[in-house]
Write a protein that binds this DNA or RNA. Structure first.
Lengths: 140, 140
DNA sequence: GGTGAGAACGATAACGGTTCTCATTCGCAT
DNA sequence: ATGCGAATGAGAACCGTTATCGTTCTCACC
């Protein structure tokens, strides 16, 4: 994941989001996370650094970024929302049920299966989400 | 979906849940829903009938039933939790993005793909969830 | 048919994550 | 420099959910 200010700023502009200092701070922090984080976690980490970003700004920024497709939202079974900076392309997620590690699965190849399953029930599929839950290499 | 009191009562007992009058009312109402419903929706529908079930009881019952695997929980992208009475077997869901209809997809057949994708990243898969979003026959 | 212990229940308060409000500050074009 | 609209911070408000607690119900046992 690109972590320079410059690259992150371009990432924002490319997706039609004005690159303000606060948004860059949020995005930069997000880029350093290996796994997904909640808005509150992100906020407290920003607090731990020099940033004085308000909680509302963190929520606003994350909502904006997820709307623009810059970050992924994982709803994590009823708990709070988790955010993660992922690649632009279509992908799915592997979740470790032990350490909660999140890994992207880039190779999808499920389009045929998805549209067949949809067709069988009279649907036309426009999107699909797959979450694989399991144990990562470390937790096995 | 079986809708007789008797059948629903057996469904509860079979899953280790005592079949009390309140729980039967909740389950009976749930069995009449075509799509998924929130706890509050279910509660107000029960209110509309003869039941005086409390909101807390509805929440408690739904939590218990989902824990025992009797009902499915759909997290529906950040909003509130939705509940649905589904079949016992492993299945996935088709969601209509227009009318929010929910249809079960019984045929999975993704196990090989899932374990291969997991293995590729050092994971061992224990479970997976698939949601297909699209348009149903009526909304097309 | 009572009786007692524990589970279930209803009403409502409490909780926690998220969103809204509004006054202030900032960014940018002029 | 200046003005205007967007962005921001602090905290209140909101709302779905959970906890509390006194009451009621269920059911095994007598």
């Amino acid at each position: 994941m690109a972590t320079t200010r410059q690259a992150l700023s371009q990432l924002l502009e490319r997706n039609g989001v004005r690159a303000t200092p606060r948004r860059l701070e949020v995005l930069e922090e997000l880029a350093q996370e290996r796994d997904d984080v909640t808005a509150q976690q992100l906020w407290s980490r920003l607090r731990g650094r020099d940033s004085r970003a308000g909680l509302a700004t963190v929520y606003r920024t994350l909502a904006l970024l997820s709307e623009k497709g810059v970050v992924d939202v994982l709803s994590h079974q009823g708990g709070e929302q988790c955010y993660r900076l992922c690649g632009d392309e279509h992908h799915h997620h592997l979740l470790c049920e032990c350490c909660h590690r999140v890994v992207e699965v880039q190779e999808c190849g499920l389009d045929d299966w998805v549209s067949a399953a949809a067709k069988r029930h009279g649907f036309v599929a426009t999107d699909h989400r797959v979450e694989i839950v399991g144990l990562c290499a470390d937790c096995r």
